[in-house]
Design a protein around this nucleic acid. Structure first.
Lengths: 253, 253
DNA sequence: GCAAAAGTGTTTAGCTTACACCCATGA
DNA sequence: TCATGGGTGTAAGCTAAACACTTTTGC
């Protein structure tokens, strides 16, 4: 059945960002306070319109830098100090997802190390890191959490849940967990990333053997640190490997 | 940096389909001959514009039915006889990917059993199943293949490659390979699906043990068939399990 | 009978797990 | 000295890979 292309309906295309980090043993997402209607005053994922001459990934990288100061990191090049992992997540286009007009949102997932402080940019009045656990619990129960009573705007709870699930599964078979760590980190710090993202406890001894025994995952820098207390721990940087084979095994839920 | 939403640039949004099947031991994709400019006469992935009141998945399901007669299959419901698996793949929005206008394409991946014959629909003059190996080889070498000399239109070779990669990895840890099989199938037929998608040979004996030993993957129907020759083989239907744990292991490349 | 495909049994190697145990530091 | 986290050793159990072998049909 032919469809007249000259009469194609106009869409607005946006990018929304699921920016995840690990702070204080909890997986957190960046949310911004909406400054305008609809859902004014509600928390939402950062995002914005794609410009006319801009690729989707470029729009996502631009929004990421505006909101956080982080640079999207092309994995084929050496990482700048404030690098974050950025990848496309999925696209959301329910005709009713935005009451103003037909908006298709290309969601992206960013993984970043713990930052000093979020930086409010774009049209957001303020920004904060919130534990994903509390952001997603609201979707089900509407239990009012300390300081932020409403569920996320639009379909952003759904997008966040998809992003979290992507991150949880992807650190199983890739070295992406290092994107949550500073440039130099210890095995224990990397383990705490896995524990926070998966929400489980891992055996420190087997974890150590596993990650140090996977070729290309970690490269020792030679230095040590005692910033976590206890015996000095070796410092590592992320190695060149991107796929872990065999993968890290997530314990049964 | 605020950006005036009232001045958002208008986009056309399309869905493109990577429809895969296995025929004669080869992974094949559905391609249609373009009937109009640009790239008139070239092979392309089937697709079309998303309508004004239509969700993205609904548009993809509509295009799939128009092109093949297959029904997109909600895995929470029992499968109709002509069911296909359909899922979102990725979104492609390079500003220059279509010379006519700014088009964002939300690609979807469909997996279907071997069909009697493709059915030309939409604005396509004709449709055919082509081995993905030959469709993707053209991207690199431009070696002229029998009967179809040019690479795919637009960025469709890239989209196809992404869809094939998704299918190859997803049959590792999910029961999706059964989507390539008829409703009742033998272990050997399922193995030939894996072999065609991965392009490797698998040990029939270990494969048999593995798939029949994974709970919920296959349920015996009680019947047998000799349509593959040799000793009669038990017939199975896809079980309720969607995730395979432990996964099928793809041999080293 | 013979070819062909379907299945079963068995051995070996690699990996995960659980946990005992030792190491090096700060307080 | 003790608490804390870092790191190594080791034995048990599970899985996959390789392959010998039996089963059941069509021709």
């Amino acid at each position: 059945m032919p469809y007249d292309p000259s009469a194609f309906p106009p869409f607005a295309v946006t990018v929304d960002l699921v920016v995840l980090t690990v702070r204080q043993h909890a997986l957190c997402a960046l949310v911004v306070r909406r400054g305008e209607q609809p859902h004014q005053g509600r928390w939402a994922l950062p995002g914005g319109f794609v410009r006319g001459d801009e690729d989707l990934s470029a729009a996502a990288a631009r929004e990421l830098t505006e909101e956080t100061g982080l640079l999207a990191h092309d994995p084929t090049h050496p990482a700048p100090p404030n690098a974050a992992h950025l990848e496309q997540l999925a696209t959301y286009g329910d005709p009713k997802r935005d009451p103003r007009m037909r908006v298709v949102s290309v969601a992206h997932l960013a993984l970043a190390p713990d930052l000093p402080a979020p930086r409010a940019g774009g049209d957001a009045h303020s920004a904060r890191w919130a534990p994903v656990e509390s952001l997603l619990r609201q979707e089900d129960t509407f239990g009012r959490e300390a300081g932020h009573g409403e569920p996320l705007a639009f379909d952003h709870a759904r997008i966040l849940a998809d992003g979290v699930e992507r991150a949880r599964s992807k650190i199983e078979y890739s070295s992406l967990a290092t994107a949550f760590c500073p440039r130099e980190f210890t095995v224990g710090e990397l383990r705490r990333v896995y524990e926070a993202v998966w929400g489980v406890a891992l055996d420190p001894r087997n974890f150590h053997r596993k990650v140090t025994g996977t070729p290309g995952f970690l490269v020792p820098t030679g230095g040590t640190t005692t910033r976590q207390g206890g015996r000095p721990a070796q410092l590592f940087r992320a190695g060149g490997a991107t796929l872990l084979n065999p993968p890290m095994l997530r314990p049964e839920v």
